[in-house]
Simulated assay, not measured.
Amino acid sequence: MNRKRVTKWLKILLLVFLLILIIFPIYWIFIASISPSESFLSVDLSWLIPKKITFKHYLDILSTRNYRIYYWNSLVISTITTVLTLVVSTMGGYSLGRLRFCGRNALSQMVLVTYLVPSILLLIPLFQFITKFHMQDSYLGLILSYMTFALPFCLWMLKGFFAGLPANMEDAALIDGTGVFGAFWRIILPLASPGLISAAMFTFLLCWNEYLFAMVFINNDSLRTIPVGVVSNFVTVTMGPSDWSRVMASAILASLPIYIIFIGLQKYFVAGLAAGSIKE
C-alpha cells in the first residue's frame, strides 16, 4: 500500500470519527425523546438501540399550549428579523461592494469591527435603550437587539459576494439605460441569490437559537421564545427520566425548522459563504 493510499484512508477515518462526534449527541437526544424509561441514562450501551419506542413525549409537548406559543414567538421574531436584516444588508452590501464613494473602505472596516464585538458586551447598552423607549416585553425590542449582531455579519458577507460578481452584465444594463436601481433589481439580485439565501439562513439560525437577549428582555411568559420557554417551564431541579424525555422531544421539535432549511438550501449556503470570503 503506497503512501497516498494510507494518507487517504487516514483522512477518511478522521472524517468518520469527527462525523460520529457530531452526530452522536443528536442521536442521543432523539433516543431519549422516544425512550419509554430511564434506560438512556444508563452507562449500559444497550440503550443505543431501543427495544421499545414511544411518541408519548412528543404528544405531551405538542399538547402543551405554552410550547406552541413559544414556537410561534420564535417563528415570528426570527422571520421578521431575517427579512429586515436581509433588506438592509442587501442594499448596504451592494453599496459597499459595487459602488465607489468617499469613505467606502473606512465604512467597510467599521462594519467588520462592529461584528467582531462580542454580543454580550451590547447587553447593558441595549437593555438601557430598550427600557428607555419602553420596548421591553415586545417583539420589536427583541428584533432590534437581534439585528445588532446579525446585520454586521450579513453586510460583510454580502459585500464580498457582490464584489465578486462579474460587472459585464451590469455595465450592459446601465448602458441600455436601465439605471442603477434597475440593474440592481434585475441583474444583481438574481445573480446574488446564493449569498442572499446563506445570509438569510445565518440570520434565522442566530435568532432561532438565541437565549441571552430573549431571557433578559422578555419577562412575559406569553412572549418568550423556545430556548427561554423550555428552560423556564420544562427544566427543573427535581426532573425525572420522563421529564428529561419531554425536554429532549421539545429540543428535537425545535430543531426541525433548522434541519429542514439546511437540508433544502445547503448548496446555496456553502456557495454564499465561499463567495462572501473573497477579498477585494
Rank of each mutant, 00 (worst) to 15 (best):
F184Y: 10
A200Q: 02
L174F: 10
A173W: 08
W185I: 10
F213D: 07
L191Y: 09
A214K: 01
A200F: 03
A192H: 03
F204S: 05
F181H: 05
F213R: 05
C207E: 02
A214W: 00
G182D: 07
A183R: 08
F213I: 01
A192L: 06
D176E: 15
D176P: 08
I188C: 11
S198F: 01
I197H: 10
L206Y: 01
L189C: 14
L191A: 12
Y211I: 00
L206W: 03
A183E: 01
L189P: 13
L191N: 09
F184K: 07
T178G: 13
G179E: 08
M215E: 02
P190I: 14
G195H: 09
I188E: 10
L189M: 15
G182Y: 07
G195A: 09
T203C: 14
A172N: 13
M201G: 02
A173E: 06
W208D: 04
V180K: 15
I197G: 07
G195K: 03
G195W: 04
L191Q: 14
W208G: 02
M215R: 06
L189S: 04
A172M: 11
L174M: 13
L205S: 15
E210K: 03
L196G: 03
S198D: 07
I175Q: 09
M215F: 08
G179N: 07
